[in-house]
Each structure stands twice: as C-alpha cells, then as structure tokens.
Amino acid sequence: MGKIMLYVSDAIIPGVFFVVIFAAVYKKTDIFGDFINGVKEGFDVTLGILPTLIGLMTAVGILRASGGLDIIGNVLAPAAELLKLPKELVPLITVKMFSSSAAVGLLLDIYKSFGPDSYIGMLASVILSSSETIFYTISVYLGSLGIRKSRYIVPGALVATLAGIIGSMIIVSR
C-alpha cells in the first residue's frame, strides 16, 4: 500500500507532462512555440515576486533568529492547553505559518525525539499536512500585486488553520 501510494505520487508530475504533450501532439498545436511563450511568462512572474520575497524572507529570518517566534509560541501556549494540544507542537504550528522548510526541521526533531508513529508524531504529521504557510503566502500574493488592505483574509486563513488542527486532533486521537 505504502509503495503504491509513493509510486502514484511520483508519477503525478511525469503523468501531467505526458497528458499535456500527448494532447498537444494529437491536436497538432505549436508545442515548442507555446512552451517558450509560457516560460517567458514564468520569468515575469518570478521576477515580479522577487522584491517581496527578499523583504519577506529577511523579516522571517530576523524574527526566527531573534527568538521572536518562540515568544509568539509562548503567548499561544495557554490557548494550546485549552485545546489539549501537546505543547511540543506549538512551535511547529507557529513556524509553519511563516516558513515551510523551518517547520520541516521541527517536524524531523519531533520524529527523532518521539518517533513518527507516536501520538505526537502522528498529530504533527497530520497538522502539517493540513496547514499552509499562511503569512508567507498571503504576503507574497498581496505584496507583489500591490494590494494593501487584506480585510478578512488573515482571520479566514487562521480559522481554516484552527479547524485543521482541531480536525487533526479528533481523528488522530480516535
């Protein structure tokens, strides 16, 4: 079962390539011309978000190195207790909102100290699977497109994240 799942996941990207190119050959479209035009567009998109990326990653880096994320984690600890969420997972959840790679580092620490099949290990896996780097991604989108007032996007994303955490706890503790 595990092997099949991983095989299927590995096959998604080549599968998409195959289907797309097959359809294009079938329809006899200008495959290479289309591809080159698309690639140029990708350059524009990437260059467009680069300034936001530099500002944002510097800010997140500073926040992490200064211990600011730990302070946010401590502030949130009572809320975690209220939810009966293991306190080891609070830093993981806070960090995931800003940086995916930093969250993976913490996840691997949890695997090392508790094991991937322990309650905490399972819960950490499921929570990370059902959450996004909300602050990071929202900033990239809004920053690079010049939208200044985000209105209820952040509260909405937080509600979704919280629902994911509660859902994870319900299903893992069963």
Partner: peptide, 29 residues
C-alpha cells in the same frame, strides 16, 4: 535570508517557468 531569497528565486525561475511553459502547451491543446 536575503541571499537565500535570491537563490530561491533562481530555483523558482527554473521550476516555475517550466510549469508555465507546460501550462501554455496545455492551453494550446
């Protein structure tokens, strides 16, 4: 971090452009 952002953007330049290229082919088809 500032350095990391640029190297991330260089990686993105490759992967993202590959995808937008494939998407354009898909659109054509």
């Amino acid at each position: 971090s500032a350095k990391e952002a640029v190297s991330l953007a260089i990686t993105m330049l490759g992967v993202m452009s590959l995808w937008t290229g494939i998407m354009e082919v898909a659109k054509g088809a």
